[in-house]
Design a protein around this nucleic acid. Structure first.
Lengths: 124, 124
DNA sequence: CGCATTGTTTGACAGTCATCAAACCGAATC
DNA sequence: GATTCGGTTTGATGACTGTCAAACAATGCG
């Protein structure tokens, strides 16, 4: 079984504006949260990205586009394994470069989510 | 002397994607850093935003546009005082909504800046 | 009042972006 | 070898963005 990595910027070359732009799109932020959620607690065998499209209700080519943006921004690493792509967050690398950023953004996203959920519940 | 505030979203209405998008533009991030730097340690009398254009070498209408984006994203507050606009960071509000975000981003920007400066020095 | 100052608004322009659909491609499976 | 499966690439489309320039608006000053 062939296994290789798709190109990604080296840690030193990750640019803040690219990372922020990558996080700025709501769909992409959801993708990141999914990657983070699914990647954690696993044995390293991530979920194939085909799932993301189904979960978010977007076309597979759109998912592919977003994953490319994330990877080229330095947010994710993509391993090619057979015909699947296993995507992981580059947490450690990002933390070296921009300490705390990923945590803060993911927490903020989670909180915004909780708030939206609470409002929806209150409205029903 | 007339003094009033321009419209801005209430703290609860600040959206993460808007804030991240606001920070994602390099020029705008520089503006934010200038606002943060100039706003601190002053008696409340901020620098009129005309200065930002000169410092960054961009047209005054472009500055106006960026300040509008920042204000509408909830990142800044703008007081109209005479014919000047005094702009401040809404640090406290942002920290309530997205704890740590502003600090992390500004630190990351400062670090990226220092790195770029060091590289430039090494290259010379 | 007339004029200068400060900033906003509008219009134009070029570039980018998110999205889908369809074609394509490499790897696994039959 | 043909087919299927997971994903990428290309093309098209509509929306948005950053920038400047010029016109406009509002305020303070002589």
């Amino acid at each position: 079984m062939v296994e290789r990595d798709l190109f990604q910027p080296s840690t030193a070359d990750i640019r803040l504006s690219d990372v922020l732009a990558a996080f700025a799109d709501p769909v992409r932020l959801e993708v990141v949260r999914l990657i983070d959620g699914l990647g954690a607690g696993e044995d390293g065998d991530g979920t194939p990205c085909s799932q993301y499209g189904d979960m978010l209700g977007i076309h597979k080519s759109t998912v592919s586009h977003h994953l490319k943006v994330l990877r080229e921004a330095g947010v994710t690493r993509t391993r090619v394994q057979g015909r699947n792509r296993l995507v992981q967050l580059r947490r450690a690398d990002l933390d070296v470069r921009f300490p705390g950023l990923v945590d803060v953004v993911l927490n903020a996203a989670a909180e915004a989510d909780a708030k939206a959920g609470a409002e929806a519940a209150a409205a029903s």
